[in-house]
Nucleic acid binder design. Structure first.
Lengths: 241, 241
DNA sequence: CATTGTGAAGCGTTTCACAGCC
DNA sequence: GGCTGTGAAACGCTTCACAATG
């Protein structure tokens, strides 16, 4: 059995896929599947097998040639690499539409990211309860971050308040931010920022629809549906067999 | 003034940034800014200037050497390239927590993606009104897609129903899907799929937090905050000056 | 002479193809 | 024999650096 701690630096592209493998492997484990091949995992993840093997090789040599990967062991290794061996409490800034949906969506806590607090500027919202968590005033942010040892902040404010929210989070001691507002945040380079932007996603789809339309002159609308092929989700690229 | 239609194929990475440039340029236009340099646009977008120029060069030569880019004209060109010269009605499948938040979030329609319909399997939800749109039964999906000429579907169902939702959307004639459920969808390769996955984003942040923690043995919590540097949002990479 | 547009170099990611091993 | 692990090739994206030019 191979050794121990965080080995090589893992490529970002791989880091982004590990959570997908993890989810699939956890499902397989639930179904008592003991062992899985790179081929099968690739199929379920909608990528190709060489990529799966290369990705997993960054964690160490945890497979068995001629057999495959032992599912529960691989689950454990990926969790460890992603830092999912303990919970990461998060704080949500903004108790509007989106903040409510996020808090109400239970999957947060289940997946190791319990909501340690929700804050808002609006005094009218303070005190209401969302997903079992009481909304507090934004001035209490630092206190929440410190006392609950929060490292990750989620920005669910209107666009105009997002930069302010980011600055407050950074001042409070948060080092990673998940931003749902459509703005480029200005933060110290040491802060890890990820963005989820609805409009961007839709506009990317629009681009592809538009190409489709200009490619075939008439009736670009999908006529007879092709066979429902293998998984091709994730990045939506063509899945070369 | 250069010519007309969809020229070269644009790299995916560029397509993903065009919406960001567009948003910034539209804001600049609102503030009566007539002209902008690649340097300035890069700063506002949190990327470097060479990238901005290369990206824009795929649209054609729309800048003026020694001067910069004419803002309103560039806005127009990007909109055209992204297919945003007309609206793209979308249909939302799933009227739960998330579906409600999406429908309630006005920014959808404003940005050229009006909600043409919301459907759900649950008869109890049918008839309720979300964001001004009445929820209809999922069996009416095809009818909505056909009559409103919808090309883009949004999946906001629970995980277990997402694949079914995808198949219904494809059968109804939708050719692009934005999927919020944490599953790899099986759809024909001709269908463009984009994924928004909360858990994946948080797990990527967790990975970086975990590295941070194992790098510095004690008190990894951000102490004195660094200066709030230039934009570094988007991908969170280091922003070379 | 400031700033664009772009070949070419550099770098990270994907895929190939096969040696290594169970 | 089947499947992993991995060098090496191929590819795509980013950055450099400078010629072109309004």
């Amino acid at each position: 059995m191979p050794s121990d701690r965080p080995r090589r630096r893992i490529p970002e592209a791989t880091v982004a896929r590990l959570p997908v493998y993890l989810r699939i492997l956890a499902e397989q484990a639930d179904e008592q599947v003991e062992s899985i091949s790179s081929d099968r995992l690739a199929e379920l993840a909608g990528v190709n097998a060489a990529k799966v093997r290369k990705d997993l090789s960054y964690l160490g040599s945890y497979g068995t040639r001629g057999v495959g990967y032992e599912v529960p062991y691989l689950v454990y290794q990926i969790r460890r690499e992603l830092g999912l061996t303990h919970d990461w409490p998060v704080v949500i800034v903004g108790a509007g539409n989106l903040g409510q949906a996020l808090a109400g969506y239970g999957g947060f806590g289940e997946r190791g990211f319990p909501v340690a607090g929700i804050v808002d500027v609006d005094p009218a919202k303070v005190g209401t309860v969302l997903g079992g968590v009481r909304v507090r005033h934004i001035d209490e942010l630092s206190q929440i971050v410190q006392s609950k040892r929060v490292n990750i902040g989620v920005i669910a404010t209107p666009t105009a308040s997002a930069q302010d929210a980011a600055e407050r989070l950074v001042r409070a001691g948060v080092t990673s931010i998940l931003n749902f507002a459509p703005v480029v945040l200005s933060v110290p380079r040491s802060i890890e920022v990820r963005k989820v932007d609805l409009a961007v996603e839709l506009q990317i789809l629009s681009y592809h629809e538009q190409r489709r339309a200009s490619a075939s002159p008439l009736r670009p609308v999908a006529g007879g549906l092709g066979p429902l092929g293998g998984p091709s989700g994730t990045s939506g690229r063509t899945a070369s067999a």
